[in-house]
Structure formats: C-alpha cells, structure tokens
C-alpha cells in the first residue's frame, strides 16, 4: 500500500482526479456567475445564499477545498521532483513537445493560484467572516469590482491563463487515467480544446458586459 501512496503514478492520478473535479466545478461556478448579468440582484444572491447554507453543498465545499489543496500540493511536489531529475540543463533546447501548453503548467498554475487567493479574499473569506463585507450581497460586490478597470484586466488575464492551463489539463487527465484510444482520444482532445476556450470565454463575457454595457 505504501508503494501505492508513494508512487509517482498515484500522485498523478490524484492530480488528474482533483483536476477533473475542479474542471467540473468551473462549469457550475460559471452557471452561477451568469446570474450576474441579470439587472435584479435577487437570483444571484439567492443562489449564493443557497451555496453558502445548504448542508450538502457544504460537504461538497470541503471536497472542493481538498481538491484544490491536493492539486496544488501534488503539483508542486511533482514539479520539484521533475526539476531535480535534470540537475544539469541543456545549453540548447528546441521545441519538441507535442502539447505546447504542457511545458508551462506550473507557471500557469501559479498565476491561477494568485488569482484564486485574491478571489478568496474578495468573496470566499467574506462568506467565512474572515474579511469584512456584506455576504448577503455578493451581486453588489461583484458589480463594484467589475467597474474597476484594473480589476477587469487582471480578471481577464487570469482567465486567459486558465484557458492555457485547461488546454493541456483536460486531455492530460484522461491520458493519466489510462484513457487513450485511437478513436476516442482525438474527440477528447477536441472537447478539451473547446472547453478551454468556451468556459474562460463564458467567464470573461460577464465583466466585459458589466463594464462596457451597464
């Protein structure tokens, strides 16, 4: 069993499962965010309230936090091992990777983490009561933030990076889970590509509309 927990492949499967879980969560979160486009704060705030108070969701919240932590922790550990595996670097290295964004996962992941921390400070910690704010009016808070040009730009850049991260993440998770097939893998790659464009784009639309239209 210890070889199972300690094995490089086990770490990777944990990364993959946690990653896929986070990918699913992104979709749920996006669904919620779209309520921000409504002129009425009611639906969004109600949904947010539901997410904050429902006991089932609370359990999921713990799982989600665990997912984040595992994904980040294992990601960093694996990356450190990978750096150590080549103590002397090459002088000249050509571009040989098939999957372009795969080279930068630790960096894109790092930027997403910074975004996540700021996002937590803005919203999640308010809900937990760690930061002052009206946790019954996230709608208003979001709209206020999206009026700040700096924040909007930061938000959009983070989403772009998220897209890069997702682009490799989706197909990579399937490969790690052993799901590679001559016929299905091209489909998976296509879905991954589509997901990595559509979902960040969906998120990006919201601040753009709020900033420019409203």
């Amino acid at each position: 069993m210890s070889s199972f927990l300690g094995s490089s492949l086990t770490k990777k499967i944990v990364m993959a499962f946690a990653g896929l879980f986070l990918i699913m969560f992104l979709l749920v979160h996006l669904g919620l965010n779209l309520f921000l486009l409504s002129d009425d704060p009611g639906p969004f705030n109600k949904a947010a309230h539901f997410m904050a108070s429902n006991p089932v969701i609370k359990i999921f919240e713990l799982v989600l936090m665990g997912g984040f932590l595992l994904h980040i922790l294992w990601g960093v550990i694996l990356q450190i091992q990978n750096w150590l595996a080549r103590p002397v670097r090459y002088k000249k290295m050509a571009e040989t990777q098939i999957s372009f964004f795969s080279k930068y996962m630790i960096y894109t992941g790092g930027i997403i983490l910074i975004f996540l921390i700021i996002h937590f400070v803005n919203f999640y910690f308010v809900k937990l009561g760690l930061v002052e704010g009206d946790h019954e009016n996230f709608y208003g808070m979001a709209h206020e933030l999206f009026q700040l040009p700096g924040y909007v730009v930061f938000y959009l850049v983070a989403l772009l990076i998220l897209g890069f991260h997702l682009n490799h993440a989706f197909q990579s998770a399937f490969q790690t889970l052993g799901l590679n097939h001559e016929t299905y893998t091209p489909c998976i790659k296509f879905v991954g590509l589509a997901y990595s464009i559509v979902v960040p784009a969906g998120y990006a639309v919201i601040p753009l509309i709020i900033y420019f239209v409203k």
Binding site: S7, S8, K12, M105
Partner: peptide
C-alpha cells in the same frame, strides 16, 4: 517496474508528448 523507476530518480510524466 514503476517502483524501480521512481527509485532511480527519473522525473514524472506530465503528458507533454515530447
């Protein structure tokens, strides 16, 4: 084989395809 591979200090696969 995987246990031995891990022991020997090879890095981990990140599915880059290189």
């Amino acid at each position: 084989m995987i246990q031995k591979m891990d022991e020997l200090g090879f890095g981990n696969c990140t599915n880059t395809g290189a």
